[in-house]
Write a protein that binds this DNA or RNA. Structure first.
Length: 567
DNA sequence: TGTCGTCCTG
DNA sequence: CAGGACGACA
């Protein structure tokens, strides 16, 4: 009789490779990299605000902006031209397909074009903040400034922004029951001036400080407020009253405390909440946690990152060539033929790993909109082929390194999109039981949280459920059909079982399912067949034995599924 | 106790 | 696909 151990000859010897730890993504800031080294530097503060404003305005920009497809090409070997913008043939559904698969796997990265007009808009505030920052730095270094001088500096700053201060055009902190909101304010260490629902009035304490620390605190409070205000105004269309306050102590303690706090505050406020992005709520299916990308991701002011490779030819041998340079990363000899994306990654910035650490989390945009029907009204104006933008639900919106240098704004999805779901399904062809490490590597554009992790785990659990149900069904059918030899059970690409599986995980049929999956499917089918034929299904937990076998057959996820920065 | 996987249900 | 119940496990 057929023995379970005979079903498959090759067992995984190393189910989980020693994967590289997820290096904190770092931004390729180039010459401006040093910008983040100290918040004490006035230019840093100036630049920070400027960059935040720039980036935020870009996010909320609604006007069609010509996509800059050439700028990035100066930075990366794989320019937009090589990616296929110029080569693109709108009528080529073939390329569209492979581009879609490729982008699902890798995750499209978008960027925006920095509007020049933002420069002028920011100038005044930059100057004011710069004055303030310079004074703050001066006080910190000299510690000799008198109270009157401090008063004068603040007055100088206030007069600079007279219209703002006079008219008290301060952002009114939203009265929120959110713990994060209250927490953010309580952390500010101030009393009434930082209470939700009240205007910031920290400057009223001018006459009360009488020590250096007080002055520093005041200046920091003011600066902090101004920074917050700048962000709040620019992102106002996206976020609703973001109280991004930070205590001076925190600002002083850590050079990254400010962006970190901003990120934390933002994240807390956004976590598992209704979309902050004003998008039409057109969710039509029960995917409460599966979201499509925000509308702004389709905005024309975002362009395809030139690091993306030329579209792949679906199902072509090239797609999974054997000449993988990543083979050294894995110690599994039965590895798959996934070196075809090598050249894709060569296009990434050569400047090393971008510094994303703190700024990566600076601003995050979340949307719960599941809008397959949502189409950007500006798609018609996109220089990038409309097919790409319409077929791609860009899972991640990041600024290309070139723009990052100008904007220093990164975004991580706080929710999984339908594109992530598609990617997860494709991953299922390789691994049925992905580890959390693998998930993190493959969904590098997602801000992992307990919620996200659970959802991904749930997805794969659902995938397995469908998988095993199909296996059991076809195994029983085989028995009913009179199959007596387990060796007669095969799973080929033309088999009905594979068609069912492929329809589920690869509905568009534009992904080249690895042969290994067919092998695993065949093994699973035979395991079920044997177990059922032996009557083991009378045991309520009879499937667990099969599960233990199948979980050892996981393959490595091709590097193309993983972070761009893993080389 | 928290996490993860399975099973069941909608 | 998601939510909930349940059990196994560390």
């Amino acid at each position: 009789m057929y023995a379970s151990s005979d079903i498959f000859l090759e067992r995984c010897t190393a189910e989980h490779l020693a994967l590289k730890p997820h290096d904190p993504p770092s931004s390729n800031l180039g010459a401006s990299g040093g910008f983040y080294t100290s918040h004490k530097d006035s230019k840093s503060i100036k630049g920070l605000i400027h960059r935040i404003e720039n980036s935020a305005s870009s996010l909320s920009c609604s006007s069609p902006v010509e996509c800059n497809l050439t700028r990035g090409s100066t930075k990366t070997p794989l320019s937009s031209a090589s990616y296929g913008h110029h080569d693109w043939t709108p009528t080529s559904g073939h390329q569209a397909k492979r581009a879609r698969v490729e982008n699902i796997i890798k995750g499209i990265t978008c960027t925006d074009v920095t509007p020049n007009q933002r420069e002028a808009e920011c100038t005044q505030e930059e100057e004011g903040v710069e004055v303030l920052a310079l004074r703050q730095k001066h006080m910190e270094t000299s510690g000799t400034e008198s109270v009157s001088e401090s008063h004068q500096h603040v007055r100088e700053f206030r007069s600079k922004f007279n219209p703002i201060w006079k008219e008290e055009k301060f952002p009114r902190w939203s009265v929120s029951s959110e713990a994060s909101t209250d927490e953010a304010f309580s952390k500010s260490g101030s009393e009434s001036e930082s209470s939700p629902g009240k205007n910031y009035q920290g400057w009223k304490k001018l006459d009360h400080f009488n020590s250096k620390s007080d002055r520093v605190k005041l200046m920091a409070d003011t600066l902090k407020y101004e920074l917050t205000r700048a962000v709040s105004r620019s992102v106002d269309s996206i976020f609703k009253s973001m109280p991004l306050m930070q205590t001076p102590t925190e600002m002083e303690n850590s050079e990254t405390a400010l962006p970190a706090q901003l990120a934390e505050s933002t994240q807390n406020k956004l976590q598992c909440r209704t979309a902050e992005v004003q998008l039409p709520d057109v969710q039509t299916e029960a995917l409460s946690l599966v979201v499509q990308k925000p509308e702004l991701e389709r905005m024309p002011n975002f362009i395809l990152q030139p690091t993306l490779a030329p579209p792949l030819i679906p199902k072509s041998p090239i797609f999974f060539s054997h000449e993988s340079e990543h083979a050294s990363e894995r110690n599994n000899s039965r590895d798959h033929q996934h070196g075809a994306f090598r050249y894709l990654q060569d296009g990434r910035s050569e400047g090393g790993k971008p510094r994303l650490d703190t700024y990566w989390n600076l601003v995050k945009v979340k949307s719960k909109v599941n809008s397959r029907s949502v189409r950007s009204p500006y798609t018609h104006a996109m220089p990038v082929d409309q097919v790409i933008l319409e077929t791609l639900n860009l899972p991640n919106v990041k600024l290309e390194p070139d723009s990052l240098e100008k904007n220093n704004l990164y975004m991580l999805n706080e929710c999984l999109t339908t594109n992530h779901l598609k990617k997860a399904k494709l991953m299922f062809f390789y691994t049925r039981y992905p580890s959390s490490v693998v998930l993190r590597m493959c969904f590098h554009d997602v801000q992992f949280s307990r919620c996200i992790t659970s959802q991904l785990i749930k997805w794969f659990s659902n995938f397995r459920e469908f998988y095993y149900i199909q296996m059991e069904k076809f195994a029983r059918n085989a028995l009913l059909d009179g199959v007596v030899d387990v060796r007669d059970l095969t799973v080929g690409r033309e088999s009905e079982l594979f068609r069912a599986l492929n329809m589920h995980y690869n509905k568009a049929n534009d992904f080249q399912v690895p042969d290994r999956f067919l092998e695993v499917a065949e093994i699973t089918l035979r395991e079920f067949y044997v177990a059922i034929s032996m009557g083991k299904d009378r045991d309520p937990s009879w499937k667990k034995t099969i599960y233990k076998v199948i979980c050892k057959l996981d393959s490595d996820i091709p590097p193309e599924f993983k972070s761009h920065y893993f080389g």
